[in-house]
Structures are given as C-alpha cells and as structure tokens.
Nucleic acid binder design. Structure first.
Lengths: 236, 236, 236, 236
DNA sequence: CATGAATGAGACTTCATTCAT
DNA sequence: AATGAATGAAGTCTCATTCAT
C-alpha cells in the first residue's frame, strides 16, 4: 500500500503527445477488458500490463493507480453509451417511439461489448472500502438515465404515461427489468437475441407505463357521447 | 486482492457432534455478518475468527476454505428466506393477495438483515474465475423464486395475469424493479419505509402484470351499454 | 512507497506466549542490527527477515509495519541505556563523580553496541514525511537526559556548576561535544579508546561547567600567600 | 526504499558551454532546495526535474546520478560557507575576536538558508552502503573547520587557549554544542534569535576554551614578583 | 542537446491456508 | 478438537536510470 499515503511528492504525469494518447487508449481498452472480466478486486495491474505486453510500471506512468484506472474505464464507457443514446434518440417522434429506442439501445449497449461492463458497473458501483467506485459512478449513471427521465416526464405531461406513481418508481420499473434480464444473461452466460428481447421488453414495459385509464377514458367519453346522442335522438 | 490458490489438499472433515454443530452455526452466523458488511473479497477469515474469539485455523477445520464458507452462508440465507416465503404464502387466497404478500416479504427479507446480504448476493453472484459463487447461487435463487413463478403461472391460467408475454419476462418485470429499488437503498444508504414502498410497488407491478383483459372487459361493458341504450332507444 | 490505507480490518495480533516473545525479541534484535547499519530508509524488511531465516510475512505477524518495528527498536534501546544510566548513577557521591559516571556511561553505551544506534537515533529522530520517527524519539531522549539535567541543576544549587548560563545551554555544552566525538568515530570508522576519551572529555567538560569560583579560590590563595610573605617579612 | 544499482555504464559527459553551465547551476540550485527539504532518500529526481520544468533525463545528462548530484550540492554549499568564513575572518584581530566571528558565522550560515542543508549534511553525511556521502563530505567538513583549527592552535601558542587537551577535543568542544543547538532548532522547528544565541554560545565556549590558569598564572607571576620584592626588601 | 517513454528491480504489505502440537 | 505459528504467493506502487529519436 500499499500504502495509503499523503502524496507530498508530485506525481509523474503523462504528457499529451500522440504516442502517449495511444498508450492511454490501449491501457483503457485492455483495462476495460480485464475489469469487465474479473470485477475490480480480482483484476490485477499485472494482468493488464501483461496483456499489453508492457511493463507494469508503464501503467502507473499513465494512471495514478488501479483505482483511478478503473474509474476512467467506467467513465469512458458511460461516455460512450450516453453519447450513443443522446445521438440516436428520435426527439421529434412521439414519446412511445423514443422509449422504444431507449430500450433497444440500452440492451444493445450493455450487452454489446460483452456483459462484463454491465456486471462491473452494476456490481462495483457501490460503497466498499478503499476502492469506492460508487461515488464516481453515481453521477455518470444519472447523466446516462437523464434522457429516460425526460422522456417519462414528457410522457406524463402528455398524459400518455401514468401519473399516479412517482417518476422514481417508474425509473425502477423500466431499468429494473432490463437489468434483471441482463443479470440473467450474465449469470447463465447464454447469448440472447437482443432485438427480439428488446421488442418484447419494450412492449411489456410500455404497457406497464401507459396511463392505465387512457383507453378506458376514451371509451367512456365515447359511451357518454353515444348516450347523449341517443338521448337526444330519443327526445325527438 | 490476489487470487489465492484453490485448495488442493483434502481437508480433515469436521465431525457431527452437538458441539461441532454449534461451532458450525457460530461460524456461519459471524460469516454472514462479515460477508454482508464487506462483500466477499474484502472479508477476511482473520476477522471472522477474531469476532468469534477463536483461531483462524478452527474456521478451516469446519470449512474447506473461505469460498466454501461464503457459499454456505449464502445458502443458509436463501434457505431462510425461501422458507419464510413458503411458510407465509397465503395459498388459499386469490393470486393477487399472494402476489402482494410476495412483494412485501421480498422487500422485508432483503432489507431486514441490513442490506448486506442483499448486496452480497447481488454483487458476488456472478462469473469470476474458477469456483465462482454464481454457479452455487443460481439454483438457490431459482428455488427462491419458484413460488413467484407458480403464482404467476396460476394467475395466467386464471386469466388475471397477462398471457401475452413469456413467464420469464414477467419474472424480470417483478424482480427487476424490486432489486433496482434495493440497489438504490443500498447505494444511497438511506433507510426507507419498507411497508409503504412495498404497497406502492405491489400496486404498480400488479397493474403491469394484470391481464390486458381489463380493457377488453371495459370495451365489453361499453358494448353492453351501447346495446342497452339502443334497446332503450328502440323501445321508444 | 506503499499505500497507506485506512485500517478498517482488525490486524492480526501476536499472542504473548513464550515462543512468541522469543520471536519478538529476535526480530527486535536483528531489526536493531539492520536499522543501525543502514538507517531507516535504506533498511528493508526483506533483509531483516532473511537474516533471521524467516519469512517476511512473519515479521508482519509480530509488528504492524516497518515503521512500528523501528520505533520499537529505538524505544528498546533507549530503555536499555536509560536504565543503565539510572541504575549505575552514584547518587550518594558528589555531583562531580556523578557527572564523571554519566560521561563514561554515555560514551560507552552509544559506542558499545556499534555506532549504528547512535547514528540511527541522531539521524532519524527528526521530522521527515511518513516515517516520522521524531515524535516517538523525542520523549525517549528527554527521559534519557533527565538524570543529567538533574545533576546539573543540583550542581548549580550546590554552587559547583556555573549558574550564569541557562541549563539548556549547559546541556548542549555537555551532550554536544560527546555527540560530535561520536559522529567523528562513526564517520571515520576508527575505533577509539572509550575509557581514555571519556576521561579526557569528562575533565574538559567539567572544567567548562565548573563554577568560575575557581578563580576566586585562586585569588584567595594569592591573598594568603601575600599575607604569609608579609608575616615572614615582619618577623625579620 | 530500495537500494538502487550503482551506475555502471559510463555516462556521456556534459560539455562546458555557457548554456551548459547555466543548466548545471540550475540543477544544483533546485537540487539544493529539494535535498534540503526532504533529505536524500526522500528526494526524487522527478521532483527536481519538475521544479525546473525540464525532463528527468536532462538531469542525468549533467550528473551521473542522484548520488553524484547530491554530493555536488553539498560540495557547493560547503564551498560557499567555507568561503564566507575565510573571507570574513578578522585575521589581524586577537584570537578571541576571531573565535567570536566564527561562532556567529557558523550559526548564521547553517541556519541561514533554512535548516535544510544543515539537516542534510548532519544526517546524510554518514556510513551507508557503497558510494556513501560520508566519504565525500568528510574532507569538505575538514576544510570548512580548518580556520577554526588554525585559530585554536594559534590561541594555544599564545597561551590564551588551554593546552592541556588535544586540539581534536577542543574542536568537538566548540562544534559539538553548536550542532546540538542546531539540531534542536531543526527538531523543534522553532526559529531562534541567531545573534543572541551566538553571543551566549561564544561566551560560554570561550570560557571553556580559555587557558584555565591564565589568570592564575598572572596571579602567580604577581605573587612571585611580590615575594621576590619582599625577599629583596628583607635582605636589605 | 533534450527528452518522451519505458522499465527492471525492488519495497512494503496482506491473507488464505497448512501443520505440528 | 483446537490452535499458535509460520508462510508462499501475490498485489500495488515507486523510482533511478536508459535510450532512441
């Protein structure tokens, strides 16, 4: 600890040349591989270095430590998927279509690069002693889910999403089943037909989200109209 | 944390005297405490032994190793909560009431003994290297959720639960949001009003599960109303 | 430098059996050797373990870390020499004799076990970053020099030690030259005749400490001589 | 900190252009800063380079290694203070006045540039493994103290400094207390009134150095003269 | 000449596990 | 049956030093 030690000595900082940046990218790439395969605690800087065929010391030239590397790996990944969501979201289409996109994209992104990142984030994004990744992960996750939250809020405003339940619960209602599905995929190590699953999931979730009385209300309005018409007709 | 070498030497097995059984129970009890406070990797056999005031070696007299101990701890816990569910489930009441019980019990059990076991299971039940916990946990989890699956199946047979979606997806729809909620509780370390949350969650989930027949029924009612109106109109 | 880590996990503590105590003594003995040969920073736990023919891990079973071991080594040594001084000091004899004893004992003790401890204490007893031995050493040193301070104070009270200079300066006047001599011995690695040096040093220092009354005595003697001469002259 | 391997490869030597000399001076200047702030072992070539805004490799272009740099830093410093002493020494004044100057200058120089150099020299000038600093420092220190030795020798020749003690011991008597005082200043990190301390110290040391019989001898001479006079008077 | 980049060697420390008693 | 004692294996991290460009 290694020592936890007040760093009084300035750290060697890596410069920003083209070569350096490539190194940083390489280490991040392999770091993502290893961390997602093994989780934080069981990953070793040794393995990361070995897979790259470089010295362990080199890793520490570019990252202050294992912890920082892992945070960077997670951050990069969140940046990617957040960008993918934000880039692809069809904002000019109805809420329902946007929701559909989100579900598809979410499942695709989390399973796309292997299930490892998914597991890493789900599992390590939590307070445990020194390697407290949770504090670093939480804001990233919030940013990632922001589009979903917007979308649901807009849905509520438009009356197509139920308003009888707090937004927070709706978020759980959406993300929960998807994460559960992902866990299952991770646990059983079975591959799955992402598109089919996404379609089914989106349909299911939307029916759970949809304003429950929407159709009913429409029907009642219809009935009332019919009744009124009939009454009027009867009075003639 | 380094990967330890898997135990290759056959261990002396502990006998089954009354005293021995007490020892086993003690170790399991404290093991549960420690594992749930720290997670698997950050727990140490040293601490477990120290809390019991016994020698580390004694732990290894009764358990082949740290991993086996942890698996046993998790298994015991699943046995308990599975039994609690099975014992309390009001099988003679309608599916809806049973579902309600399950949701309440689930949240209560997972948060009851602190969030630690919840976190341990959610977090360590996952693919990591050889001898992983995941393989041991999966069947336990399946057994635990069996009553829920039964219940949903029965609901489908009775027509009160939607049948347009595979059971597997429905399970995710139920367990997913609850786990999501639990994670949130664990992450933010905020205590929550379990009963209130359970009520809201149960209501929400049930409305998502409920056979979309509800609308059909409404439509049927409309048809009837219209018919009635027409009949009345015809009588004039 | 290893990481400092907030120790949340209880440390393995060594028990207090006879065997254990022997181990502790062994490690302290060899630790003293190594630390005094190399100084703190250049000493390694590896070497200490190797000289004992034990595993490095064993060292850490008995001492929390390098730092603590070194502090213990220094403390033990101070205990020894402090005890030796306090045990041997001839308190019933005149201050001058006690001072003589102190000087002899000091030189003997500091050079006795090699010059290493002397160097270690002189050199490492000072604020430098993480391994701040200074705070641990200062009170030990004060306790060690307490008898000397007492002795000087008593000397002042008795009028045999000069009172025109603060005690603090007198302490520097006594310890300074001795340490200087020891440094020289350490630096040049020449052995020296401790007894002879001690005799000369004691004499020199005492003459520097002695109450300037000496000259008054001389003047008195002169007066007497003159008087005697005058008497003799008068008898003529 | 690990023992580094002594440089075995012959280094490229730096040229002696004006620019190069400036570089050397810069590195020496910053090296002095760092070494005196942190001591030898805890200083890093990284930090020295960073403070200068140059590459670490550049440091090694001009100095064979860390150790050589440190030796040069110490040597430069000794050159400065030696020159200061030799320049200021009032050689045409009495020994006592010269001594006074030396004491003042010594304290001023050692504490002047912070206590760091003082600590560095006092602390690292000592036996440690191969290529130690002690061997390099000793001759520098001897040269530095040469004026003092001269001065004391002259004092003995003139009869104003005691001759009953070897010069070597007298040197310890002078330098010892001063170093002791400096250590104290360094350890306690308290600033001190250099001039006042120097005055007191000079007075004290001189009274310890002064030929103890000087006054007595004068008195004896007086007595003899008196006796002789009386005798002569008696014979009349 | 200067340096960006890399690294070998090693330091301290932790911990699950074994085994003689 | 219990444990005191020991340790192998591994892990994270540091830093002086080299060398191609």
């Amino acid at each position: 600890m290694p020592t936890r030690k007040a760093a009084t000595t300035p750290q060697r900082r890596a410069p920003a040349s083209a070569k350096s940046e490539q190194r940083v990218r390489d280490i991040l790439r392999v770091g993502r591989e290893v961390f997602s395969e093994r989780g934080y605690e069981r990953s070793t800087t040794t393995e990361i270095a070995q897979r790259l065929g470089i010295s362990e010391a080199t890793v520490f030239t570019y990252f202050r430590g294992k912890r920082e590397l892992c945070v960077r790996v997670i951050a990069e990944w969140y940046d990617e998927i957040t960008a993918a969501i934000e880039r692809g979201l069809p904002r000019d289409q109805p809420v329902r279509a946007q929701f559909d996109f989100f579900v598809h994209a979410h499942l695709r992104l989390f399973l796309g690069h292997g299930t490892g990142m998914c597991a890493l984030v789900l599992s390590e994004g939590r307070d445990k002693g020194p390697a407290d990744l949770g504090d670093a992960v939480l804001p990233l996750h919030r940013r990632y889910t922001a589009p979903l939250m917007d979308l649901l809020a807009r849905g509520q405003a438009d009356g197509v999403v139920r308003s009888d339940v707090p937004l927070r619960l709706l978020r759980s209602l959406v993300l929960g089943p998807m994460e559960h599905l992902l866990w299952e995929a991770v646990s059983t190590r079975k591959s799955m037909d992402v598109n089919a699953q996404a379609r089914a999931m989106s349909m299911l979730l939307w029916s759970a989200l949809a304003a429950p009385g929407a159709e009913l209300a429409a029907l009642r309005a219809l009935r009332d109209a019919v009744e009124r018409s009939l009454d009027e007709a009867a009075q003639i």
